[in-house]
Design a protein around this nucleic acid. Sequence first.
DNA 1: CTAGGGTTAG
Length: 611
Amino acid sequence: MMIRYMATHPTVTLVESCTGLREIKQIHAQLLINGLLNDPYCLGQFVASIALNHQNNLAYSDQLLDQSHNPTVFALNSMIRAYSRSSTPQRGFQFYNRILQSNTPDNYTFTFLVRSCTQVSSSDAALAVHAAIIKHGSDSNRHVQSGLINMYAELGFLGSARKLFSEIREPDLVSQTAMVSACARCGEVDFAQNLFDEMPYRDPIAWNAMIAGYSQCGRSKEALDLFHLMQMDGAKVNEATMVSVLSACTHLGALDQGKWAHAYIERNKLQMTVTLGTALIDMYSKCGNMSKAMDVFWGMKERNVYTWSSAMGGLAMNGAGEKCLELFSLMKQDGIQPNEVTFISVLRGCCVVGLVEEGRKHFESMTQVYGLEPQLEHYGCMVDLYGRAGRLDDAFNFINNMPMKPHAGAWGALLHACKIHKNMELGELALRNIVELEAKNDGAYVLLSNIYADSKNWDGVSSIRHLMKAKGVRKVPGCSVIEVGGVVHEFFMGDKSHPRYGEIEVMLGEISRRLRLAGYVANTNPVLFDIEEEEKEDALCRHSEKVAIAFGLISLDEGVPIRIVKNLRVCGDCHDATKVISRVFNREIIVRDRNRFHHFKDGECSCKGFW
DNA sequence: CTAGGGTTAG
């Protein structure tokens, strides 16, 4: 018998323009009156149309199919597809079982099923589906093939993905791009680049995959370089390209290039999608221009949970805890459901302004109001919240009462609180726990050593030094980045390789002189810690952020804020010194360290000493 | 009548 497909029934085509369930029900009634739902093709079309156009009313299609005795593969496929794009992709599997009962799965079935496996990230399901694909001979279908590559990459099985790719006879643009993306996502960016180089033709999606690959693994400079190559190649830059470009700027803290990217988006009239807007907000807030970030935020037509969470996270990171909490209220008024990430922002907002009780309430509301299970990160935030507020006992109790094994982050928050509030004993306990979990956590050793140094416990300092040597822990070298004229300059601790180092050195001398004149006395206690170069008093002046600030002072015009991005946390002396520098040089200095922002102005810092 | 590759927050 020949299978004849009918064009979509005119009544069913109306489903597309429905605005809600009520209208869908009206169409349903009409179809019933006309007896059209007895026709499996028409039912299939109806079900598929709801699934395709009305993600929120998937359950309605679900019910319709439950009542139907002979659904078509088309209808069931449509359900697998719809669920594969929903937040509950595993629900699609039941329709596959139904197909197996009375029909034969086809290439479409497997394409959607593979997507579901990718979304649920289950290797059991993935292997079972792959076996079924081979059994039904769908493994020679291009759509299934690239889906499988994507699936294995998502599961981290790059070897399987590569094997599949090598078995494709004549890989086309799509499967090549899938493989490039797979390598990049599994951390094999260089391999991805090789594949990319060998592609006979590259479309914008291929470029995007490669740029995203660099951006996601932290090779931000290379991401931007590739973006420039893409433009020279004449490929059409689109929204997705710019999201990755902005993300690269964010990680570099390269505000000028980020601004340039923003201008590029406007000049080329790219669509300000939710994703792109969110990437812009993230860029501005992590490059220290929070007001611009909020301008973008308020200018957006549509905001999702990512948008709200990024803006809130940015406010918290920039010390505007109250504004972060205000935004949280507005978000709820807007009917956007907060998720786990939102609560990280909320708790950080409470933390930076010391709102302990409010934070505790939000934390409890996670389970009681929103049905969200607090994760390790949330517990870490709570320890931070109690700890910074000086409630070290509460912080310690909180760790002890965690329902899961505390991670190094929780102990690290406690250790940090011990540093702020000068508690040696609890600090020692915290370090012991951290070392048990992460033997090579250099930051933790340094922190405890600094606690010892602050109270002039030189035996303690020296014991830490020996401990680190014995365990082979090396301090990650401090590195500060500053962008001048669109060029990113990197300075490592004690680094003299910069072409203008002579001038920088002169400026460092000038800084020391003027700091001394201002009555500033360096806190040299922690210096004794430095294992490799024990240059003692000079060493502090060579901390990478000071060198970067000196370079900023000689290379940026007066009145231009100096923006620094540092890979570690700012040390106590640099923090104090920078406050004074901002006053005596009358310069705004904005430092992004690995945790948060410091806006130095007129001798004060926005963090008010808590970081 | 359905299908494969690229993009955001911790």
